[in-house]
Design a protein around this nucleic acid. Structure first.
Lengths: 214, 214
DNA sequence: GACACCATACCAACTGGTCGGTATTTATTT
DNA sequence: AAATAAATACCGACCAGTTGGTATGGTGTC
């Protein structure tokens, strides 16, 4: 009788990638040893270097894996269903706040963590991390542009800059959460971000549209 | 003839601390070797371990050194001279934006960098980093409270949370700057923070007070 | 038996930290 | 003020543990 594992457990490559996300998010890039990742994945270095030719290679693949995972999460998130673009934007913020659950390594950002410590030593990896953040921010730009069109905007800023600012607040909230050892401050900061959006568009969402007679 | 160095060059302990700030800000905590710090300071490991009993001990002292340095910079900054508290708050933001000059390691945050990567592995160091950020945020709270009193506030948030949010934006701006390899995005994000403050208090500073007849 | 996958043993390079010794400054005594 | 004792500051070789990566061999599948 041979054990059938291929169905029930992830293939080893994916297990290593998932393990990398977990370990790096809690210990940082440099402090993460490949044996840490192997242990987390329940494998050994033999397997590791069969699938990846170096630690950097693994991390690069893990960034792509992170993109796939988070891309799926946000693509399927409920906030897209709302009719009004400002409501969608605010619901995105609410969703980000709702994700602040569990332990810190469970909700902090993989690419943000790497970026902070490796931007000088591993520029190629950080370039991918930057693209990851930029791409995620871009998914908000259409809604922001729609809001600017409908609710008006003073033209002193662009949809791109606001989308990136939202990411900056979230990244900064993670830093503060780590610094103070809890998610509460991060939630407060995201509340301030939400307030900024409502003030910026002088309303609290679809109600304003109704007032405008739409 | 003996060379007189004691006047012209800093004492070695301070040189090591300054070197630590510089190297850690560009390579991160874990990737920084004590020999890197020694080389930057122009000293050897013998001297290093004479002044500090371990790498962690040095970093702890460097956090205190960072507090002293930045504390001095902000205490003597010109924005304190303004009469109106909202003007002071906005001038602080402008000042933070003006500090975004030179290369990334020149203006990014020492304690924020450490926090991001070491919050699980070196909790005692990160605790000090957290206190450093909190203490700096606290220097803004009096002005914020004064603004809330004069300009009114909706009571859904505290002066403390706004002060910390401002730090979160700044920390996040650093992450984005590292991720995209330039200070421009950081400046944009600080602009958004400034806009938030003006919207929050429904004015652009002392002009509003004049409108209110003060 | 060819091949993908994985485990174990192993290596060379690196790193934090130690240690014995030397130069320099400061305190003490004469 | 000279002589001497005692700290203090600093160096560079060295050590022990760690780490990324390799070499080799085993196991199950086609």
């Amino acid at each position: 009788m041979v054990m059938e594992m291929t169905d029930t457990q992830q293939d080893s490559r994916t297990r290593l990638l998932d393990a990398a996300l977990k370990v790096v998010r809690s210990k940082g890039y440099t402090a993460t040893r490949v044996e840490d990742i192997c242990a987390e994945a329940g494998l050994t270095k033999g397997s590791f270097f069969h699938h990846f030719k170096s630690k950097d290679d693994l991390v690069l693949a893990a960034v792509a894996h992170w993109d796939t995972m988070t891309g799926g999460v946000f693509a399927q998130a409920p906030y897209h269903d709302l009719a009004d673009p400002l409501d969608r934007l605010l619901a995105y913020v609410d969703y980000r706040k709702a994700l602040l659950a569990g332990d810190l390594p469970d909700f902090t950002c993989f690419v943000g963590t790497i970026t902070q410590e490796a931007y000088q030593t591993r520029p190629d990896i950080v370039a991918d991390c930057g693209r990851s953040i930029t791409n995620h921010a871009r998914t908000l730009e259409d809604d922001i542009r729609a809001v600017m069109r409908i609710y008006g905007a003073d033209g002193e800023w662009t949809a791109e800059s606001l989308a990136l600012h939202m990411q900056a607040v979230i990244q900064g909230a993670f830093v503060l959460a780590k610094a103070k050892g809890g998610a509460a401050i991060a939630a407060d900061s995201i509340d301030h971000l939400r307030r900024y959006l409502t003030l910026l568009f002088g309303s609290t969402g679809s109600q304003a549209l109704e007032q405008k007679g739409q």
